[in-house]
Amino acid sequence: MSESVVTNVVVPMNFPYNYRVGQYIETYIRGLGEGKILGIKCPSCGKVMVPPRKICGVCDRVMEEWVEVGPEGTVENYTVGHVRLNLGEVERLDTPVLLALIKLDGADSLLAGEVRGIEPEKLGDGLRVRAVFKDPAGDSLSDLEYFEPEK
């Protein structure tokens, strides 16, 4: 009689978390609902950052001045994704996804976003894009749905 030994058990960890986004991301999300992208300006270095946050760590200053940026911007860095990660597992995609770091007009930082409506080979640095908002808005970060080439 062979001895049965358990060598492996699968334990999926799925704990619920309830993150408070804080007042900065809340204001940002409300802005998206109105079709606006809001950045925050550092009173010291004057840089406008998106997404916004409370503190400019470089200048040690609390940031309070909201600045509307975009919705147009320029692609500064990009990648064509042939896979996506689903809970850490690599899944191949039939249609590649286009991701870019975009400098929105009026902002100093780059915002990560998905670009749609363009062939992968045409995506490149310097491409002008424009934010597309979800309609109706859903009080969420994905109200800024994607970017498309500027017409």
Binding site: Y19, R20, V21, G22, R53
Partner: peptide
Amino acid sequence: KRKDVNIAELIS
């Protein structure tokens, strides 16, 4: 419950 701040802000 600190509902008014996120984790990083709380620490700050």
